[in-house]
Structures are given as C-alpha cells and as structure tokens.
C-alpha cells in the first residue's frame, strides 16, 4: 500500500446511537455507497484521515520517481530509456492527480510538501531501498507497481469521490508499469547471460520482502483500520490485500524461473492460498521511522529539487505578471 499506518484520530468506533444527526446521515450515505463530494458535510476525522492518506499516497508517487531516476542515464538501450522516462512521467502525473484531490479537502499543497520535507509526513517505506542493478528496474515495475495496483484497484471504490476518480485514472496507467517491469525480467531470463540471470534473482531477493511490507502491518483491532474501513476510505484490510498480491504473483514468479527468498512459501490446498513466512516488522518500523537505507538521501533530493527550482517558479510568476500588464496596456 502506498499509505501505511494512517492515523484516524478514532479511539473506538461510534455506535449509531452516539452519532449526531449529521454524522448519522453521513454514515448512511457511505453505507449506501453514495460518494462523498468536496462540498458535502463530512466528519472532521474523515477529512483529516483522507488528507493524511492522500498526501502519503501523493508523496509516495513523487518520491517513487527517485529510485527509477537513478537508471535513466544507465538504461541498456534507447527503448528502455524511453519506457523508463514515460513511467517516471506517469508517477509525477499520479502525484499531481492525488495532490489535486487532496486540495479539494481544503489542504494546501505547499504545506503538505513542507511536512514531508520536515519528516512529519510519511511516504511508502518501499522507496527507501536502493536500486542497485538494472534488474531492479524490472523488479520494481513488476513487484512494487504490482503491489500498488492491488491496493489501488480496490481504492477505486473508496468513498471520497475525487480520490476514487484519481484512482481510476491511475489504475488505467499503472498496468503499463507492471508489464514493462515484468518484460525486463523476462528478457533477461530468456536471453540473458548467467550473470544477468543472477542479477534478476538478486533483485527479487532484495525487493520481495519490502514489496510485501507495502501493504502495512497486520490487521488488528486497531481503531484506525476499523474507522477507515467503516468510512470506506479503505475497502480491504492490509492482510487481505497482501494475500491477494502473493496469490497472483507466485505463478508469474514461477514462469520467470525464479524463486522468492521465503522458505515458508508454499501452496495450501486447504485454504486455496499461498502460505508465507513472517515479515521482519522491526525492519518495517525502522524504515518508516526514517532509518532505512535511503531515507535521508530521498528527502535531501526532494528538498534540493524544490529549493533549486525556486527561481523557475518565481520567473514564471514574474513573466505572467508582465504579460498581464502588457495586455492591459495594449
């Protein structure tokens, strides 16, 4: 998931009897699958939770460009380079769709970006891992975008209209990302040297667990996940989504002729799902707290881009002002 651990401010769920008439009307609309639109009344907690979740999601898209940017000048040929640039441009676009939908809730884009730069806002833990070899571009597209798709397909049905519509657009574009990633790996496995095949397995070994962590911690009875599900901001629990991802990914992994770095991974005839090993949650929380391999580098790069681009934004405003004056004088 691109948003992990979103605080809702709820200590426990309110019963219908405890809700104010407005809250009750709101909840009934949500229950009836009627989308909430920007000008509709909504509980303050709903608004704040959405701002947190959508901004995390947007920040993830934006920071997600960085591990891939590392390979633009190193792509093995022009075709791969163009594909990678198109994918990165999409990520920028996805970030913008999301920031726009967040702004309909009254949040300010600059303020939310400032929170990211101060370390107060989170983004997906996955982007704090380095991309060390070319096969990482394949594994990121296939596994990371693949995990994002599982999450985002479900979020198309989220209760907030602008968020849901942004998700529809994003999902349309995202499957190109996953396919191009898988194709990179497939080409390397089919036509590559032994060394290149080893690169593929190495990339999968490193990215496998962090990709599973994208769905966030285990479902629990925490008021946050319960509240988000009741408001239909989230539509499926973290563990359900993770299981869906694993079930659909293993056949693709086997087709590649590769393995997952998980000795406990096996098909369970009884449940009709794959069993898999326990995630290293200590690592997950460490990365989320800012202590992953690349956290500092990512934020430094983002800040630098904003700061060093300041003159461009100022020049654009000055130019627009000058054009306006000229038009007025004419």
């Amino acid at each position: 998931m691109y948003a992990q651990l979103v605080e809702t401010g709820a200590k426990r769920l309110k019963t219908k009897e405890e809700m104010s008439p407005e809250e009750l009307e709101f909840q009934e609309k949500v229950d009836a699958e009627i989308k909430i639109e920007p000008k509709n009344w909504m509980p303050e907690g709903y608004r704040k939770t959405l701002i947190r979740q959508i901004s995390q999601h947007a920040h993830s898209e934006v920071v997600g460009m960085l591990p891939e940017g590392n390979w633009v000048t190193r792509a093995p040929n022009l075709k791969r380079k163009l594909q990678l640039m198109a994918k990165i441009q999409d990520e920028a676009g996805h970030g913008l769709y999301l920031y726009s939908s967040m702004e309909t809730l009254g949040a300010d884009r600059d303020e939310e970006i400032e929170k990211l730069h101060q370390g107060k806002a989170k983004y997906s833990s996955i982007f704090n891992y380095p991309t060390l070899n070319w096969a990482d571009m394949g594994a990121v597209g296939w596994l990371v975008d693949g995990a994002a798709i599982v999450n985002q397909v479900v979020l198309q049905r989220t209760s907030y209209g602008p968020y849901s519509r942004a998700m529809v657009r994003i999902c349309k574009e995202e499957s190109f990302h996953q396919r191009q990633g898988y194709q990179i790996l497939l080409d390397m496995m089919r036509e590559g040297t032994d060394e290149q095949k080893a690169m593929v397995q190495d990339a999968i070994n490193r990215i496998w667990w962090p990709a599973l962590m994208m769905f966030g911690p285990h479902d629990d009875e925490s008021p946050n996940s319960q509240q988000s599900l009741a408001w239909k901001i989230k539509r499926k629990s973290n563990d359900e989504l993770r299981q869906m991802f694993i079930d659909q990914t293993i056949p693709q992994l086997e087709f590649l002729g590769c393995t997952a770095p998980d000795p406990d991974l096996k098909w369970n005839e009884e449940t009709g799902h794959y069993d898999f090993g326990e995630i290293n949650w200590q690592e997950f929380y460490d990365v989320l707290k800012g202590n992953g391999p690349c956290n500092r580098e990512r934020i430094t790069t983002r800040k630098k881009a904003i700061d060093e681009g300041a003159w461009v934004r100022q020049a654009a405003v000055a130019y627009a002002e000058k054009q306006k004056q000229r038009a007025n004088a004419a």
């Binding site: 726009s100 702004e103 600059d110 654009a316």
Partner: peptide, 29 residues
C-alpha cells in the same frame, strides 16, 4: 505551488463529444 492559481481542466476526448471535467492544475497563467 499553491501561490499559483488553480485551473479546472476540461477535455474533449473525441470530435463530436462534450468537454468533460478531468481534474485541475496549478499555473502562473
């Protein structure tokens, strides 16, 4: 970028169809 004005964007997908709201962008002009 919030100091830039917000614009709503409408796109006509094919000739003969209406322009349809697709989202918004910030811009200096």
């Amino acid at each position: 970028m919030s100091e830039w004005r917000l614009y709503e964007v409408f796109v006509r997908s094919k000739h003969g169809l209406n322009h349809k709201h697709v989202g918004s962008v910030h811009a200096a002009d």
